[in-house]
């Protein structure tokens, strides 16, 4: 067994151990540790934003800056792809 294989085996066991321990420490489904923010949003979202869908009201209202960043990422990706392939079209 070469040195590279030894390193791979050790690294693989460490990653496996990490995953197994985090699987053992997992909470039961639907009961997270901290529930303050969830409860506040679930209680107030219909009264404050007027939307029935809580997820959309979080995405576009409570956490609007995240959506703005996502839109910027999409814009940058499209600009890069069009810049790359338009030159291919002309030449």
């Amino acid at each position: 067994m070469s040195r590279r294989d030894m390193f791979a085996v050790v690294f693989f066991s460490i990653v496996c151990m990490f995953f197994i321990f985090s699987a053992l420490l997992m909470h039961p489904f639907g009961s997270p540790d901290e529930t303050d923010m969830d409860d506040m949003i679930i209680k107030n979202t219909q009264r404050e934003t007027g939307a029935n869908n809580g997820v959309t009201s979080v995405v576009f209202d409570y956490r609007g800056f995240d959506t703005l960043g996502e839109a910027t990422i999409l814009f940058t990706a499209v600009a890069g792809v069009v810049l790359l392939f338009r030159r291919m079209k002309e030449t």
């Binding site: 219909q46 934003t49 029935n52 959309t56 209202d61």
Partner: peptide, 17 residues
């Protein structure tokens, strides 16, 4: 503003969403 709790849903709600 819709009724708080489960309701039938109305298109004319939601503000800027």
């Amino acid at each position: 503003i819709p009724m708080v709790g489960s309701n039938t849903g109305d298109m004319n709600t939601g503000g800027v969403l």
